[in-house]
């Protein structure tokens, strides 16, 4: 299983803390997020990706505590047991 955790405004939008999806062979994180949106039936990818499917850069996507920016971004492969975190941090001070 893959665990996807929601934080801050993503959590408010989806009205849930996390969701679990069964592992799918040869799937990357971008594909996983598309599958997640279909499963939970609440549009949220517009908060993460632009019209071309590129990250909007307002939300951190982490896999097992690592920002996907340091991995293969949305093409980072997903493996059974991975924990994905979607977190839009507050920028002000």
């Amino acid at each position: 299983m893959i665990k996807i955790q929601f934080y801050s405004l993503i959590r408010l939008l989806l009205k849930r803390e996390q969701f679990e999806l069964p592992t799918s062979d040869n799937e990357n994180v971008g594909q996983l997020l598309q599958r997640l949106q279909q499963q939970i039936a609440t549009p949220f990818l517009h908060k993460l990706l632009d019209e071309k499917g590129e990250p909007i850069l307002g939300t951190i996507i982490m896999i097992n505590r690592r920002n996907i920016h340091h991995l293969e971004k949305l093409e980072t492969p997903i493996h059974d047991g991975d924990v994905i975190a979607l977190f839009p941090p507050g920028a002000g001070g």
């Binding site: 990250p55 920002n67 920016h69 941090p89 507050g90």
Partner: peptide
């Protein structure tokens, strides 16, 4: 950090923790 009604606090130790720049990489 604070934005609207959401915010966060985090402690890092230089040299042993991930850096803030790594954690927030790509954040606009």
């Amino acid at each position: 950090g604070i934005e609207g009604d959401q915010g966060q606090v985090l402690t890092l130790q230089k040299g042993t923790s991930q850096s803030l720049a790594d954690i927030f990489a790509g954040t606009r």
